[in-house]
Structures are given as C-alpha cells and as structure tokens.
Design a protein around this nucleic acid. Structure first.
Length: 255
DNA sequence: ATGTCATGATAAC
DNA sequence: TTATCCTGACATA
C-alpha cells in the first residue's frame, strides 16, 4: 500500500477524524511507542505528509511515522479492542486509528525534523512543489532512471509501483541513464507523477489505466502483469536499485 | 504449522 | 551489494 498517495490520503483522513476533535487518547497496546505519556490527551493540531513520511502535531510535539513496506493504519470503531501488534492507537469520539508494523513511529524534535525534511526531494503531491532541483539532479546523473525514481532525496513519494507505471507510460526503459533524459521528458514525468499520485490519493489505491478500464476492474499497465496491455508482449522484469521492476521490452526499448 | 511474498529504507560489508 | 527490521495475507502441507 504505502507510496506517497497513501500517506497523503492518510493525512487527510486523520485530519477529518481527529483534528479539532478535542483530546486524543493515545496508547500503544504493543508497548513500543514509548512517548505515549507526553502525547496522550492532547489535541491533534495538524496531520500532513511529505513523500512517504507522515507527521502528526500534538501541541509542540511532532510524531513522525514511516510505514515502510508493511506498515498500515486501520480505522476502527473505538469499541473494537486493538490487537496486540498495534504500535499506536489514536482515539477520539467513537473512532480509533490503529497503526501496525511501521518502520518509524516516534516523537521527533525540530532539529531532526528539519534534517529529515531537508533530505527529501520534491513531492508531486505538494501544492507548490518545485521540481527544478530534481530535474537537475537527474540530468547530472549516470545512474539508471529506475534507480533515481526510487531515490527519495530526488523525488519523494514515488515507490515501486509508480516507478514501473510511470516509465511504462512514458515509454522509457528502466535502465536509461538519468543524463539521457531531456527537459520535455522530465516535465512530462513530473506532470504524470502529479496526476497519478493525485488520483491515487483520491481513490486510495493506485490506478493508472483509463476510467473505462478501471471500471472493468483493471488498475495497472505493467506492475504485476504478464503481458503488455498495449502490444501484448511478455512483460519482463529486472532488478534496478535492488527492487524488481516490470517493463515491456517493446513499448520501453532501451535508448 | 510453515513458507513466501509485499507498494520501504538503512546499516553494514 | 547484502542483511536486517517491521507485519499479515495467502499458499502449501
């Protein structure tokens, strides 16, 4: 689940349920969120995401959550007892949000927060994101575009599914070096990333096919597929930056 | 009951 | 590059 769209949507949903809703009851059934006492009973002032990071502001404290690969938030009725793996439960009124399996969940101080944000690249979901620096870094790099897209210090929020879908839709081979990308291509990449992640946040899932095809239950072009929906070639996969990426050898020729 | 895999990131080699 | 952390769903036995 968790690429940038997931965190953006989560921030919206947590805001709707908990911000301006008075005191939030904070607990850690699992016991591994150690800062319960400093947060419990305070109102949630703001919830927002940057890339794949989620930030929750309680008073002057800020909680940093990163879901990693397995992390999940689930919205429950307050009457539902949390399972023992719940790292963090936020509850107000009749609603509880349960967090399990995060890579990070802790109070973060201003200094660490600033350092973290400083090493995140432009987020396609941010209102006034300026991708110029990302473009410059991509153009200056000989690394593969498939690796650059996963580098959160260049662009933040794109994960393994979006990188595969973006490269497919733009007809770019995953191993194309960043320095081979021209400005129109990078602009198209950014525009498409914004569009797809925005749609992902709206639908709360990644959908890259047309509305018509989505209505038939389809969602993706290459990720997890066996044959290309455009040319029916066999989809291939390779490892780029340590993760598998699917691509169509015919729609995404090298060079 | 056990094994496998996953939309992530980092530390260590 | 590999190892490691984080969990749960699903397949296989």
């Amino acid at each position: 689940m968790p690429e940038g769209h997931t965190l953006f949507r989560l921030a919206q949903d947590l805001t709707a349920d908990l911000v301006d809703g008075g005191a939030v009851a904070v607990s850690s059934p699992q016991g591994r969120f150690v800062d319960v006492a400093t947060i419990d009973g305070q109102p949630l002032r703001r919830a927002y995401s940057i890339g794949k990071h989620l930030f929750l502001e309680f008073g002057r404290r800020r909680v940093h959550v990163h879901l990693g690969l397995f992390g999940k938030w689930k919205r429950r009725r307050l009457s539902t007892a949390p399972r023992s793996s719940v790292r963090l439960r936020l509850a107000a009124k009749r609603i509880a949000w349960d967090l399990t399996g995060p890579t990070a969940c802790h109070v973060i101080n201003d200094e660490a927060y600033e350092a973290l944000v400083a090493r995140l690249g432009a987020d396609p979901l941010a209102k006034r994101a300026r991708p110029q620096k990302a473009f410059a870094r991509i153009k200056a790099s000989r690394r593969e575009i498939g690796a650059l897209l996963l580098d959160q210090s260049i662009l933040s929020g794109i994960g393994n599914v979006y990188r595969a879908e973006l490269l497919f839709l733009l007809g770019i081979h995953p191993q194309t070096p960043g320095c081979a990308m021209d400005d129109p291509t990078l602009k198209a990449l950014w525009t498409l990333a914004r569009k797809l992640l925005r749609r992902g946040a709206e639908l709360n899932r990644i959908v890259t096919v047309s509305d018509d095809n989505a209505a038939r239950g389809e969602r993706l072009h290459v990720y997890g597929r066996r044959s290309c929906r455009i040319c029916s070639s066999s989809i291939r996969s390779m490892s780029v930056a340590g993760r598998r990426i699917a691509y169509c050898p015919s729609c995404q020729p090298y060079q």
